[in-house]
Amino acid sequence: MEMAGAAALVTGGGSGLGAATAAALAAAGAKVCVFDLNAEAAQAVAARIGGVAAAGDVADAAAVAAALDAAAPLGPLRLAVSCAGIAPPARVVGRQGPHDLALFEKVLRVNLTGTFNVMRLAAERMQANDATSPDGERGVIVNTASIAGYEGQVGQCAYAASKAGVIGLTLPAARELAKTGIRVVTIAPGLMETPMLAGLPEPAREALVKLTLFPHRLGLAEDYARLVLAICGNPMLNGETIRLDGALRLPPA
């Protein structure tokens, strides 16, 4: 998928993985719509990369449709990257009692329903594109799971379930959208240097780094962004979830 002159939507684009991805895509020649729940953060990133901003909830159909409308003047929508997500820790049964059901549902709504919502609405727009290659490619959808979707830790039931759902929808979505030349690929990051981990005390951060193999560090948002570009550039990557974790396997706790 050639990014020069194409439009891209990046959710969660106001910070972390999304902000790095938006910047990398802009550097590759794409025109990016930065979508985030935080309107100020989205606007700041968009201004920095020469894109446009949109704000809202990824699980809200009208908000995502409005973001896609904002991206439309930039060019044909060729790429949608879903980076929006939340990861509040909670045990199935903790000191305060059983896991709050509303919190569980919220995590699923943002991480899984939100990802599906973006995918379905972006795919509808992409199907109207002209093919860009002899293969008939019209668009690429990149979703974000987590290695927690494979080996979730204690306190991650909601997060792990939501990310396992993203992994599970990857292949059937790719199979369905293949007929219109749209690829679907998921990235499952490991321990990443993102705002989700930024608030941890230094001893906790050091403990996380000790878990890593090679490279012996937390992953960087730029590592994720480079993989998005690689996915865009390789048409044989489709229907797969790629672990971006330096061979890390999470322990139980």
Rank of each mutant, 00 (worst) to 15 (best):
T115I: 02
A4T: 15
A131N: 07
A178R: 14
L229P: 08
G13H: 03
G75T: 05
E176N: 05
A207M: 13
M192V: 04
N117I: 00
S146A: 12
L77N: 07
M126Q: 01
A41M: 04
A131R: 05
E124K: 13
G16H: 02
V154S: 15
A44T: 15
E40D: 15
S15K: 12
V185Y: 07
Q127S: 13
H216Y: 10
K163F: 04
V184M: 08
P88Y: 07
A8K: 08
A122R: 07
I167E: 12
G239Y: 07
L227D: 12
V92W: 01
T194D: 11
V93D: 14
V64W: 00
G136N: 10
A6M: 12
V93C: 13
G56S: 07
L248E: 11
C157Y: 02
A102N: 13
N238C: 12
K210V: 03
L213Q: 14
G13Y: 00
R138Y: 06
D130W: 01
R217W: 05
N234E: 15
G165A: 04
A87M: 13
G16S: 10
Q43L: 08
V140M: 11
K210G: 09
G165L: 07
R138C: 07
A41C: 03
L77T: 02
L244C: 01
G239C: 05
V92A: 14
L218A: 10
A22K: 08
